[in-house]
Amino acid sequence: MDEKKYAKLEKEVSPKTPLMRNVIFAFLTGGTICLIGQFVSMFYMTFFDFTERTASNPTVATMIFFAMLLTGFGQYKKIAQFGGAGSAVPITGFGNAVISAAIEHKSEGYVLGVGGNMFKLAGSVILFGVFSAFVVALIKTILVKFGVVSW
């Protein structure tokens, strides 16, 4: 049996990814997390001096705090199995990646373990976020210099 034939057989036998189910659950889970985020942001606007735009910082921090509790009590991975990208794409998923790595590597100590491994999973997101921000800002600045677009 060669590789191609086996790959075909493997596709036939392996259970199919339930795409519709996954998409719907991702929508519901992600939507619910964002809805909770909206409530948190409303809370900050109502009781503190935050506007819509500035409230997003404390909201993100609060959502990551929720993610910490859910991760610590072992609930986040259950939400993830249920909601897929719905739990990974919101900032809580980023928090979960950092927090789960921190908890996991506690056994190697706080400096080498927690400190060294915290961004094992989430580091790539920061790298590409920062690098693409640099590139985009650079391109835009150059375009503005040449008068193609304005700020």
Binding site: S14, P15, T17, N22, T71, G72, G74, Y76, K77, K78, I79, A80, Q81, G83, G84, A85, S87, A88, G93, N96, A97, I99, S100, A101, I103, E104, H105, L121
Partner: peptide, 17 residues
């Protein structure tokens, strides 16, 4: 799990396989 895949508490959707 920690060695081969992700931290135990990391949420990733596992396929049926």
């Amino acid at each position: 799990e920690r060695q081969f895949r992700y931290p135990v508490e990391y949420g990733s959707q596992k396929p049926a396989t």
